[in-house]
Design a protein around this nucleic acid. Structure first.
Lengths: 111, 111
DNA sequence: TTACGTTATACTTTTAAAAATATAACGTAA
DNA sequence: TTACGTTATATTTTTAAAAGTATAACGTAA
């Protein structure tokens, strides 16, 4: 009759105006853009299409009132994408929440 | 530069052997089965197909070592589905975790 | 002024999920 | 022994998501 051991898993994300704006996958994308300076490289690393990555970046930027990523085309290297200081702040905030969430999951799982 | 107010949302679920076995939607299904005594009625209430509901019940039952739902065909009313005491216990455990999770979300959202 | 590699965008194709459809199996009660 | 309403299962169709393809726009540097 006793409940056997189980693993509790889950996801958290940030919504603005009832729309999902930022979650685990998108934050990873932002981090990779920050590290590489390129949407394309970040997409390749995460094995998603450039289109999908660009759409996500676009959606993230539209969700907030100021951009998290600024991108330019042309120039040295063909173009560039940088994560703004505001973007870095949001990333940091989300990761802090996510860490607490992981703690929550391990506290409430198993049994 | 400050992060604007935002809503934190999310989901939690129970995994057994790296497989999702029970989450928010499935628990609601179980509750409706318990209330109606019928997989079909529960499915109708949740606007899903009987097939989908049955597949879910089947998957839930396979995940645990004892069934959460026992169903019979034929007889008075055409057939019946009941949630076992073990099933009720699991539902209750999940809902308790979920309540804590809701608390977590509202504590960490907004700002 | 040309080549380069990326951003930006549209369009098509593929794939996977969901829904819909059909039908057999079953046990009670009339 | 027939009708009923459900469980149980297979199959097909539809829908939506993802992936793939193509191409224009751009700014630097050779």
């Amino acid at each position: 009759m006793d409940i056997p051991p189980f693993k509790l898993n889950g996801r958290v994300w940030i919504e603005i105006g009832d729309e999902k704006v930022l979650g685990h996958g998108r934050v990873e994308l932002l981090e990779r853009i920050h590290a590489s300076g390129s949407i394309r490289q970040a997409a390749l690393q995460m094995k998603m299409s450039y289109k999908q990555a660009w759409d996500l970046v676009n959606h993230i930027n539209s969700g907030f009132k100021q951009p998290l990523v600024i991108s330019k085309r042309g120039g040295k290297g063909g173009g560039v994408a940088i994560v703004t200081p505001f973007g870095l702040e949001v990333i940091s905030e989300f990761k802090s929440i996510q860490q607490k969430f992981f703690d929550f999951l391990s506290e409430n799982g198993k049994k």
